[in-house]
Design a protein around this nucleic acid. Structure first.
Lengths: 343, 343
DNA sequence: TCAAGTTATGGAAACGCTTCCACGAAAGAA
DNA sequence: TTCTTTCGTGGAAGCGTTTCCATAACTTGA
């Protein structure tokens, strides 16, 4: 049988209370008692039971990370590992563990999360990208648990315990639109992630609004869903390029999709940027090493993760009010967008 | 106060035992009693406490995933997300949760893992890549918890509860060596991951042994540690290429390192493959879309994750003996290796 | 010298469930 | 009819901690 606090107490000739005090570094323990207890613990190879401790005190130091398997933030996107890694670093410093959930089945996930909160299994949540028309935050807000959303979330939710860390996707896309126009592109397409996440919606809408404001007509058919993988984006790009010969530029809401476009262009013998320009988003490791190097927007993924985690722990540990934060991005002008005005 | 089983029992006019039976779908409960209890539960918004359940029965259904932050399997490598995602899928199907730990501080991690096992917090472990001279498995084997190692581990450990899923890194590298020789390369360098993981050691050793067997002299200085990021690999490649003008090919033990080599080549105005050939390993999304497309080895990362998880659950759930498994890889011949014999 | 603090410790209730054992009632077997 | 079984249920002892309260032995300070 595994040794318990009771056995330790007996062997050390003290009460369970005293053993507990020793484990928790309570000051009111005589040094000799403490060392006696400690030596018995060592001798018996005693390991405290976390479940029992959790049950009788304040639960576990875990934070729950929720992602959508089928999304641009999905596990096979470099974004995912980066951000999990960053959150994990901060968590480790705070001696917290990470629990990973996908919310592909939302109702199920809400129930699970509520149960974990109720059981004091988790102290905070990081939501990697919120779905549009998701009830998740609405429900979870009621529990009062600190939540950090990476990205935008339903603006009608106002809760002290929910905070977002984000980049300005809408504005960035708007500026990309202006840049493309400035380079002389007027027939612009877009390959985007499925529009059930705010991030994708904003990246698309920013570009559309820019074009509208500048009175550039565009065809809704040139804005197509490119799924979440290189292959789906490739198929989408192939379709788009075949059916729209006048297109001179495509905005990919994610460098993974840009990869799909590069692949399609190569297979159609289209040169980038001479025949078709490409603008990406995120700036992954490989982006600058494509041929031509991909013009894209650098998103500070690592910072996104670190700052989210920091805010979360600050909320957990001190009940301090935290505020949402917008991180700056930077356009990386490289070689995948042609300047049509100089031709 | 949160409703407990006791309150439910009182309101429903039954004993706690009966409520518990209802929750656990025990057959010996009269249908009318069951529905009475269920309706009270609903009415009170009762949520079972997982901690209490865990304490008095058989713990939690969690599996622990351990990775090394500073390694080729680190979070910012596409490998990481892929494999976590794959394991997660299988875990979800089995209604298990994932807990994520890094083992950068090994002693600390051993202690944590042992404590979790002791507290019945986890039922199995997936170790993403084992360190050479690590005590982790040695210690954990003693606990009898099922463990799957992705990659090779200390061959002196023999335990019923440890199983590995891997690709044959040594053999693959050996074959890469032969292929390069066949293409007329005799001055071959290597940029590898730090040699504290079996995977890196094997990938390097396979090539070295090939060269030795074929009586091709090589300079140890041409085998250099390229760290774990594109940047560190880039620096390593720069150094290597500057100081070894006769090198005609470099083997990168990871496509991320190949990226570093591409970058170095570009900055030194070296053409791939005309001036320097590159052979990678893993075959990531971007690898086939580089210019030239990277010749590399396709590692079935997704399968690695799925199969590992399946084996783990089979061990957990049925005490069935599982066996280690070697997954097949496939060389992707693309454009980054020149055939010197045809020049 | 004695009341009023301290201090180190023990006892036992709580945390919220599960589960073993017991028991009465109903049902089947002899 | 009587003796076993089976079934639905309740009682209460765990599971392994923490923590509140009590207590006894020492200080202090006037």
């Amino acid at each position: 049988m595994k040794p318990t606090i009771q056995l330790v107490a007996k062997k050390a000739g003290v009460s369970m209370s005293t053993v507990s005090r020793v484990m928790n570094n309570h000051p009111a323990v005589l040094p000799e008692t403490r060392s006696k207890v400690l030596s018995v613990m060592k001798e018996l190879d005693y390991i405290p039971n976390q479940l029992a401790r959790g049950l009788s005190s304040n639960g576990f130091n875990n934070i729950l990370i929720i992602f959508t398997r089928s999304s641009t933030q999905a596990a096979d996107n470099p974004y995912f590992g980066n951000i999990i890694g960053s959150i994990g670093m901060v968590a480790e410093q705070n001696d917290y563990d990470l629990i990973l959930h996908s919310n592909d089945n939302e109702d199920n996930e809400i129930e699970k999360a509520v149960s974990m909160i109720n059981s004091k299994l988790i102290k905070g949540i990081v939501l990697l990208s919120s779905r549009t028309n998701s009830k998740f935050l609405e429900v979870l807000a009621g529990t009062g648990i600190p939540i950090v959303v990476i990205g935008k979330y339903n603006p009608s939710i106002h809760s002290e315990c929910i905070v977002s860390v984000d980049t300005d996707n809408y504005q960035d896309s708007y500026e990309i639109g202006d840049y493309l126009l400035q380079m002389g592109h007027t027939h612009i397409g877009c390959i985007h992630a499925p529009l059930n996440h705010y991030v994708a919606v904003d990246r698309v809408q920013g570009l559309k609004d820019c074009l509208k404001t500048r009175h550039i007509a565009f065809d809704e058919d040139c804005f197509v869903d490119g799924g979440d993988t290189v292959d789906t984006a490739y198929m989408a790009a192939l379709n788009l390029l075949c059916s729209n010969r006048q297109l001179t530029a495509i905005f990919a809401t994610d460098d993974i999709k840009a990869l799909g476009i590069y692949k399609a262009a190569r297979n159609m013998n289209l040169r980038i940027p001479e025949d078709i320009s490409v603008f990406g988003h995120n700036d992954f490791d490989f982006s600058s090493l494509l041929t031509p190097p991909l013009t894209t927007i650098r998103v500070p993924i690592h910072e996104l993760g670190m700052i989210s985690a920091s805010k979360l722990f600050s909320m957990i540990q001190s009940d301090k009010k935290e505020t949402s934060q917008m991180l700056p991005t930077k356009i990386q002008f490289r070689g995948s967008v042609a300047n049509l005005k100089h031709q």
